[in-house]
């Protein structure tokens, strides 16, 4: 049995920047425990001699010549923003009062 606790889920939610409600944390704690027990079986066959695969098809890094290509205009880039001042995205304070 995995040892997923409410505190752990609460910490993960904080890392993932999701303000979960206490009810959601309770529910997720139970569900994650079941899911993690089921997927932990990967370690049965993942022995030290097996190399990891990150990509299914072998790839090399991709470069292009360092010349400007077509890009979005500032207006296009800002078109979907919740708030902007015409040339920049607007957000609330980065630091809280006690920071």
């Amino acid at each position: 049995m995995s040892e997923i606790t409410n505190d752990q889920v609460s910490h993960l939610a904080n890392l993932a920047r999701i303000a979960l409600t206490p009810e959601e944390i309770d529910k997720l704690t139970g569900e994650l425990g079941v899911i993690i027990d089921s997927i932990a079986k990967v370690s049965e066959v993942a022995t030290a001699d097996v190399p990891a695969t990150s990509h299914p098809i072998r790839l090399v890094n991709v470069f292009r010549p360092d010349v400007p290509g077509p890009t979005l205009t500032a207006k296009q880039a800002l078109a979907g923003a919740p708030e902007h001042d015409g040339s920049r995205f607007k957000v609330s304070a980065i630091l809280g009062e006690e920071q």
Binding site: Q8, A16, I18, T21, L28, L32
Partner: peptide, 18 residues
């Protein structure tokens, strides 16, 4: 993210973060 994501998306983000 709390208001905008549904339950399955939250479940998988938390699982992936773990």
């Amino acid at each position: 993210r709390e208001a905008g994501f549904g339950p399955e998306v939250k479940r998988r983000i938390i699982l992936g973060t773990y």
